[in-house]
């Protein structure tokens, strides 16, 4: 298998796996945050801020995979 084909399979798969992982993480995080807001509606703004920052950390992992994809994309063709 030439390395272009291998990259063509691997790169989207890498992004997909990374997205899967961070989707699970984001989902759990969002659920926990919603539960916390439901329990303490008066602290909603603080929880939202923490949630968004946490989202950013989790999401960054997918973004790294995406960046890797962009870097490797040029080598496929």
């Amino acid at each position: 298998m030439p390395f272009q084909s291998a990259l063509g399979f691997a790169v989207p798969l890498a992004v997909a796996i990374a997205a899967l992982g961070s989707a699970i993480g984001l989902g759990r995080m969002g659920a926990a945050a919603m539960e916390a807001i439901g329990r303490q509606p008066e602290a909603a703004s603080k929880i939202q801020l923490a949630m968004i920052i946490g989202f950013a950390f989790v999401e960054a992992l997918t973004i790294y995979a995406l960046v890797t994809m962009f870097i490797l994309q040029g080598k496929i063709s």
Binding site: A56, E59, A60, I63, Y64, L66, V67, F70
Partner: peptide
């Protein structure tokens, strides 16, 4: 590194 890559990746994506 994480700051720049996060912003760049999101907006580019």
């Amino acid at each position: 590194l994480s700051l720049s890559l996060r912003l760049f990746g999101n907006i580019l994506g």
